[in-house]
Amino acid sequence: MTQPAILVEDLTYSYGQNLAVDHINFCMDEGEILGFLGPNGAGKSTTVKMLTGQLRPQAGRATLLGLDVARQPKQVQAQIGICFEVTNLYEEMSGVENLTLFARLFGARDFDAGALLKRVGLDGRGTDKVERYSKGMKQRLMIARALVNHPKILFLDEPTEGLDPTSAQAIRALILEERERGATIFLTTHDMHEADILCNRVAFIERGKIVALDTPHALKQAHGKRMVRAQIARPDGGLEVREILLDRPETAEEIQKMFAGEQVITLHSTEATLEDIFVRITGRGLA
């Protein structure tokens, strides 16, 4: 049996009386993308800080690639890449200089700044100072920096927040490329659509506890409502929208009757979004 890339057992942390992370448990397989979703203050950042060795857990443990992160933080950090939510690049230095600095700190041997910059779409801008980059370019450089050591686990904190659709799409493509390479990706995001299309599984965290953890499909199955939405012509010339829930014994008869007795203009199947499910489970939105 292969060991999990990340194994979290009863991980706990509190800031004074405020319990930020409350005995959470989960594991991630190699090559998996896990979306970690929750509103501000839910405990996402504290969890990431503990998993990356920036905070020492007060209870429980986390092992990454079989290494206890509290006891061997530097060995863990040598094998992970982190893309922070807030841009923290050396703005006075060029893109190449930023990447070279971190490659040296990681002792990366086969490091090629040019190739890495090309991968993130910054070829030709490597010698420019970072202060001249746009927000999207900085974000791509942040991801490139997280990749200098060919990490086995990538932590990405809101990697596409505030980016234009093209830059966001480029970054999503990179994330999928990394998964193809075999990297395990821990993705923190507010963007439910992004989580839906990228993640193998998603975890909802609320007030320090994981309240749901499964594949997006399974969560929708378990918590969403499958239905068809029909537009029907009314005798007065107007349109009536009617929703018919699926998974009921009488559904087939209801649809058959509708087609037989009424003029159906359109008919679409709909399913709940992750956001709907999050609201349903937690009783609050993601803001």
């Binding site: 990356t52 920036q54 530097k74 040598a78 922070f84 923290n88 690049l89 703005e91 700190l105 990681f106």
Partner: peptide, 14 residues
């Protein structure tokens, strides 16, 4: 303040 030290300290640098 810029967070660059935080980035340095999540590398093998002690």
């Amino acid at each position: 303040e810029s967070g660059t030290l935080r980035a340095l300290l999540v590398t093998p640098l002690t």
